[in-house]
């Protein structure tokens, strides 16, 4: 709070003081008191007024300074009323009570919303576990009665499964830190698992996948990593060109980290859009060409990578290829 602000707030008081003293000095003048004595009185009065006002200003400034510092030191700003010293003046007490009530009602509101959110999330998770039962049933039925039609049905169920998985992972995104198990996993095994999860769909898409040069193993959570790789491979197929789709997956040890390259020969990404593909809801010109893009897949990948400490980036040449690179950090203290 600046002094000028304080003066502005108190200009009425000043005005009253000034006009009061003017009135009294006129009165005193008519009573026959000399001008010099009146000026002396003015000076005395001015000194008294300015001292009082300055004192008040100092006090208020100190108090405000204290409150601001307290607020600054707080991680959760809404706890200020719990931390600050008890209010002294009556007006401050009222403000304090006001603030407290407002914050209380806000926290109530927030916790209510949070409770609903958790409930909703639990419901979604529960539902996903339930929907998996009939899907498993369909899969087994198809597997036991394999015909051309059944193969197509499996393809469709694989797609349904993909989408369900995505919902589950989206719902869990906020709590990755509560649900992971870091251990040494073989990249090859992870990739194989993803490929066999989508076997029918991939075969129907007539895709060729080269996996011979995946050899390294990394420290990560296999469930989440599989999900990330899955999204990337599905994207590769979604954005394939007229050429028969070929996906090349390889890993390379880069000394400080291990990189997994997933390269396709699809339509690629325009240079102007490469940096935005990880944004939530970003569809881009490829997505708008009727390829049912949702702008969620890569966003989820990016978020997950962030939480798992995996680096992710994309290299692409429009009309030629797209490579997604996953960088897994190597940590020496994990090699006990």
């Amino acid at each position: 709070m600046k002094f000028s602000d304080y003066m502005k707030d108190n200009q009425i008081t000043l005005l009253i003081c000034f006009s009061g003293s003017l009135f009294f000095s006129i009165l005193l003048f008519f009573w026959g008191i000399s001008l010099s004595e009146i000026i002396l009185l003015w000076i005395c009065f001015a000194i008294i007024v300015s001292f009082t006002m300055f004192g008040y200003f100092r006090k208020q400034q100190k108090r405000i300074q204290y409150l601001l510092e307290a607020l600054d030191s707080l991680d959760k700003k809404y706890l200020i009323t719990e931390i600050a010293d008890k209010p002294e003046t009556e007006i401050e007490k009222i403000y304090f009570r006001l603030l407290k009530t407002a914050l209380k009602s806000m926290t109530d509101e927030v916790s209510e919303v949070r409770r609903l959110n958790v409930e909703y999330k639990d419901f979604i998770e529960q539902w996903i576990h339930e929907i998996k039962v009939p899907i498993t049933g369909i899969q087994l039925l198809c597997e036991n009665n394999k015909t051309e039609i059944m193969r197509k049905i499996i393809t469709q169920t694989e797609l349904i499964e993909q989408d369900i998985e995505r919902v589950l992972f989206y719902a869990r995104l906020g709590s990755v830190e509560k649900d992971y198990l870091i251990k040494e996993i073989s990249l090859k095994r992870c990739v194989m698992e993803v490929l066999s999860q989508n076997k029918q769909f991939l075969i129907q898409s007539r895709v060729c996948v080269h996996t011979d040069s995946i050899s390294d193993s990394v420290f990560s959570d296999s469930k989440w990593l599989c999900f990330i790789i899955n999204q990337i491979i599905l994207n590769s197929i979604k954005y394939c060109s007229d050429k028969p789709p070929v996906i090349e997956i390889k890993s390379q040890d880069m000394k400080d980290y291990v990189t997994l390259f997933i390269t396709d020969n699809g339509i690629g990404i325009k240079p102007s859009e490469v940096n935005r593909v990880f944004d939530k809801g970003f569809v881009g010109s490829n997505g708008r060409m009727g390829r049912k893009s949702t702008g969620i897949g890569l966003y989820l990948c990016d978020q997950l990578c962030l939480k798992l400490g995996i680096g992710i980036n994309i290299e692409s040449k429009f009309g030629c290829y797209t490579t997604v690179l996953l960088h897994f950090p190597k940590s020496n203290h994990l090699n006990i």
């Binding site: 998996k132 899907i135 498993t136 899969q139 698992e193 076997k199």
Partner: peptide, 9 residues
């Protein structure tokens, strides 16, 4: 192994 499971796996 989790449902829906992949049959070869």
């Amino acid at each position: 192994i989790t449902k829906p499971y992949n049959i070869p796996i």
